Computed example of a mutant assay.
Amino acid sequence: MKNIVILISGRGSNMQAIVEAELGDARVAAVIANRPDAAGLAWAAERGIATVALDHKAYADRLAFDRALMAAIDDFAPDLVVLAGFMRILTAEFTAHYRDRLLNIHPSLLPSFPGLDTHRRAIEAGCKLAGCTVHFVTAELDHGPIVAQAAVPVLDQDDPASLAARVLKEEHRIYPAAVRDVLAGRLRIDGLRVVASA
């Protein structure tokens, strides 16, 4: 049985989608949040999943928190660490520690619109398509080999909230599938690309 550790900062809707998905020979071993009041912790605990609250404000700096976070994650011997609305910029030490086993989902079609306010920026740029990207995490923010993407049309009447809602439905569809494919060994990293395993 392969172990997944999911990191959240809030309600964790992508975490919920992964927990409720058919993951084959894998299970969500733990959900860890950097905010003790993250609603997703209670949701996970109600389903018998181990939870850890690790308040980043209790640490002197980003690296001290990341080292404590690594220790908490490693207690669960993860095969894959999944970021699901985890609103922290991670240090190079952290991303190197989980190299090739750290996934994130970002609400844009990367490499376009890394960072925040992706839906507003896509609308303002006149994009006809927006979407989401599952990618392996590297030290560079919202970069790394792309595992999966999904696109939705940007409608003339869209505002950031309406576009976000359509994109979120796609996030909930492609993220569990990407997690399943990575853990099953169906994908491999080839330079900057993710390709089907031979």
Score class of each variant (00 low, 15 high):
D55E: 13
A130W: 12
E140P: 11
I8D: 05
A164R: 13
H143D: 13
T118E: 03
V195E: 09
H119I: 07
V154Q: 00
E93N: 12
R47N: 00
T51E: 14
E22F: 05
L90Q: 11
I174H: 10
D100N: 08
E20A: 13
V81Y: 09
F76W: 14
G131C: 13
E22V: 08
A45P: 04
V154R: 00
R180E: 00
R166M: 01
N34E: 07
G115R: 02
R173V: 08
R121D: 10
R62F: 01
V28Q: 11
V152P: 08
M70A: 11
V194T: 12
K2E: 13
I32E: 12
D100A: 06
G24W: 08
G48P: 03
L168E: 11
R47Q: 04
M70H: 06
P176V: 06
A77P: 06
E22W: 07
V154C: 00
G115N: 03
E20N: 13
G40R: 05
L192N: 13
L83Q: 15
D117N: 15
F86V: 07
P111D: 05
A44L: 01
M87S: 03
L103P: 08
V19T: 13
M15L: 03
S9C: 08
V52R: 07
A64I: 02
V5W: 10
A17M: 10
R120W: 06
V182R: 07
A184H: 10
